[in-house]
Computed example of a mutant assay.
Amino acid sequence: MTSPIRVLLVDDQELIRVGFRMVLEAEPDIAVVGEASDGRQAVARAAALEPDVVLMDIRMPGLDGIAATETIVRERPLTRVLVLTTFDLDEYAFGAIRAGASGFLLKDAQRHEMISALRAVHRGDAVLAPRVTRMLLEHVAPRLGASSAGPDSADAARVADLTDREHDVFLAIGRGLTNAEIARTLYVGESTVKTHVGRVLAKLEARDRIHAVILAHRLGLVPDDPAGGSRAQA
């Protein structure tokens, strides 16, 4: 039997933690192993409990979610952090992505969206819902090195170095597809997709899938309008 996904809940509001726990523990493949009400507790409990995924709030007293994310990702590279944020994706959440978070989960997300996001992050996918992708491009890209003049020649050169199959995988990542969805689209095995994704990120010198999404949009290879192709991870 497959071990359940071990989740640590981090939020300074107890009622939010209670609500998330009720939703997640109703799933047979998810186990909430602990809670924390601030960043310092999150770091300590992540070390003690060794969760697979941390559901991380950003604005908390004391140590905030950005600093906590950076520490957890550095000390436990196999633990994924999924950031809780508001609809407008405040600048604090952008900082968490730079710190190594694997994606965003909107606080008004539906039950199935939260569960899908946790499973996707646990599989190693980055989570970017369609409406998040657009705001990410508008607000995060400049902070991650994008220029108003568009991508530089080095970006284009690295993309040109991709093989045809790697280019297909890159475009699929840019559209927000998970590894499983890419496998179905390209008629290959999921393990093959994982290998291609690793090579794509290495060749593009992208830290993670989120940076690859930004680059694909900056290069104009996929539509900026979520309705035109970007989808939520599932």
Rank of each mutant, 00 (worst) to 15 (best):
P28K: 03
G62M: 10
A36E: 05
V32F: 07
D52C: 10
M56G: 13
P61A: 02
D29E: 13
R59E: 15
D38L: 06
A46N: 07
G34K: 13
E27W: 13
L63N: 07
A26C: 07
T71A: 14
L63M: 15
I30K: 13
I66K: 15
D52I: 02
R21M: 11
P28E: 12
L55N: 12
S37H: 12
E70A: 15
D52H: 07
G34E: 05
R59S: 09
I66P: 07
A42I: 08
I58A: 13
E70C: 04
D52G: 09
A68R: 07
A68Q: 11
V32I: 05
R40K: 14
G39I: 08
D57P: 14
M22Y: 08
A68S: 15
F20A: 14
A48S: 15
V33F: 14
A67N: 05
E75D: 13
A47N: 08
I30F: 11
T71S: 04
S37N: 13
A48V: 06
L63S: 10
S37R: 14
V23I: 15
E27F: 10
A31F: 07
R21C: 12
M60N: 07
A68P: 14
G39E: 12
V33G: 01
A67Y: 02
D38C: 13
D57W: 11
E75H: 11
V43W: 08
A67M: 06
E27Q: 15
D29K: 08
A48P: 04
L24G: 07
R45D: 01
V53W: 13
V43L: 11
L63H: 01
L63D: 00
E25S: 15
L24W: 02
R45P: 01
V73G: 03
A42C: 03
P61C: 02
T69N: 08
L49M: 12
A26I: 03
V33I: 14
V73W: 13
Q41V: 00
D57T: 13
V43S: 07
A44G: 00
G34C: 07
E27S: 09
V54Y: 11
V23E: 05
L49D: 04
E35H: 15
D38F: 11
I58H: 09
G34H: 09
D52M: 07
G62R: 08
R40N: 10
M56D: 09
E70W: 02
M56T: 12
L24C: 08
I30E: 05
R21L: 08
A48T: 09
E27I: 09
D64H: 03
Q41F: 07
V73Y: 11
V53L: 04
